[in-house]
Design a protein around this nucleic acid. Structure first.
Lengths: 338, 338
DNA sequence: CTCCTTATACTCCGATCGAGTATTTCAGAG
DNA sequence: CTCTGAAATACTCGATCGGAGTATAAGGAG
């Protein structure tokens, strides 16, 4: 996968940055039997090269993580708590925010087993990937952590490597029944061989890879797994975020939360392609967006795109009131008739 | 709405019941600043008359609630904790279980404000609505709590009553801008007038009604709101469950988790209609199910349906591996050309 | 002026799906 | 035994959706 170039839709953005306070984790050590709650956000922005998330450098050379912090008594709502941590650690103005999932497996939190660590993951979308806001925060292409999820240029090499090892994993089941079960699960999540690939099932694929020991873990020697490592369960949260976003663009006009106020058809298409990790047919995508009434022309054009000047569009927020499910149905290659 | 008749697909089920232990809530009073976690399940079963949930009678004449209990240190995972509470309080064998949402607003928990009460809601599906398992548990049609959500026999009277009051609520906004915002939100969630009604948005509708003070609350005089009351935030969890289920049947074959091993087309259709709260076109539903390859014939027929004997079907679980999104697309009446 | 690049417009055609109608097959009443 | 009603099942029509391909327009660089 080519490195994500951080050219922005809005390259001219420039605002004074200020450093953020690192959360102090030594406020009160949790007593045994108690519950701690961590709020984490996968903050996503779109760039021409693909979607990016805001990652915080790990302390002391550790694995990077998502912006996060503990739930505190002062937070009126969970989302408010999340927003306050994000505001403190980054300089982003969050647009759409939604809760993803609450993780709480006892055996998957490496730390003190006497304390129950709940982790509530959130997805947040921002319109422009501003300068990260602190020296510890940086925008990174999200496929860095999920290289097998990017099928825009055909099946990625990472997936080629993984597939062989996944088959080996399936065949290493203890009993014949277990092997069949593993093969079935493999077929359902990875679609075996590229056809039948379902973009949404990011978390299911990650969990399968995790169970099969095929993703890198913090502390493991390099090369043993695919993709970069994240702190705690943050990579799992990111997988959930990607899956949710991929699923949701199909039935809600959520992509526009990632777009600047005015954009071209191709920019919109490339954003969707980046999110979904697949390529789309240009004329059909155009027609789809047009006839869905999701956008309207601003009247202006831009010549920044290279060839013929492109008309600029804006999102028609009225569709939220008009149409029932104004999403961008992703085309699925039609099966040849049986 | 006619009262839900508890005739079962499986009326012949008969197993010795045993009383369940009521959870002791006095194990250790939470200290200020601490976090408590309650796990609650909306357990859903399908009956010919419509979907039902298992409700626990409220103690001392209080409002009924969902099976639930606090997260404990012995629970390995959140789902395991939920299952153990459900096993203790009911006699149901849960099939599909999925996490819905974590609620944690400080101001919406009526009890001790010093303690943060998290509430993690789950959706669970069971194949047969067995006898409730304890004298305190009972199956209830879910539209009892959401009468405005049942559009199977046209727009329900409850919604008629509500609409007038919702418009009044919208028009009582402080500023012109607030009024427009309220009208827009109303249009988006309720579809104003019946067309544009989107089944999934159950929670959004409930939250709007809640905010407008139009749903019954515990302790309020009868008649002030529509629908029955539930303990704590359990009604909110149920709203989330209904919405999730309605959304999910469209892209995953989840209805079959509610069906007995063999069933007829009409039973399947009525189950879907009950869940979605709308009526479907019989021949088209048939064709849809057939050509989707979701079911296969068992070879047997049943005469219990009244007229011509109906063939019995079973779910083809293989489709989970074959097809990408094997859901039951719900038909949406086509708009007359503009 | 040529060529390259991108934007935009249009066509074809199979598959989908809403809507309606006709036919079969049983149970039970007369 | 026959009629009747209820439900199951089968078939048709036509609009539209949407995948795939191709053609044309309009700028910039050389």
């Amino acid at each position: 996968m080519p490195p994500v170039v951080m050219r922005q839709w809005f390259p001219r953005y420039d605002r004074s940055m200020s450093e953020s306070r690192v959360p102090e984790s030594d406020e009160a050590p949790p007593a045994p039997g108690q519950v701690t709650v961590e709020l984490s956000a996968a903050i996503v922005a779109a760039t021409p090269a693909g979607p990016s998330v805001l990652a915080l450098r790990g302390e002391g050379g550790g694995a990077p993580g998502l912006p996060s912090g503990p739930l505190e008594a002062t937070h009126r709502t969970l989302e408010a708590g999340l927003r306050s941590w994000v505001a403190e650690q980054t300089r982003q103005e969050l647009g759409h925010v939604e809760q993803l999932y609450t993780f709480g497996d006892r055996d998957r939190t490496a730390c003190d087993p006497g304390v129950r660590a709940l982790s509530i993951g959130y997805l947040a979308l921002v319109r422009e990937a501003r300068p990260a806001g602190s020296a510890d925060a940086a925008w990174e292409g999200w496929y860095r952590w999920f290289p097998w999820e990017d099928r825009r240029d055909g099946q990625p090499a990472a997936l080629d490597r993984l597939e062989a090892r996944l088959v080996a994993w399936a065949d290493s089941g203890a009993t014949a029944g277990a092997r069949q079960l593993r093969r079935d699960r493999l077929a359902a999540t990875f679609g075996t061989g590229g056809d039948g690939w379902i973009e949404d099932r990011v978390l299911e694929r990650y969990e399968l890879l995790y169970g099969a020991g095929l993703v890198s873990e913090a502390g493991a020697p390099p090369g043993v797994g695919e993709g970069s490592v994240m702190r705690a369960d943050h990579r799992r949260i990111l997988a959930t975020a990607i899956g949710r976003l991929r699923g949701k663009i199909k039935y809600r006009p959520i992509v526009f939360e990632l777009m600047p106020p005015a954009f071209t058809f191709l920019q919109l298409q490339q954003t969707v392609e980046g999110l979904a990790g697949i390529r789309l047919h240009k004329p059909n995508f155009r027609r789809l967006v047009e006839q869905q009434g999701l956008v309207e022309e601003t009247g202006e054009v831009t010549t920044e795109t290279g060839g013929r000047p492109a008309r600029l569009l804006r999102f028609r927020s009225e569709v939220l009131l008009e149409r029932p499910a104004p999403g961008l149905r992703l085309p699925r290659p039609r099966q040849p008739a049986a």
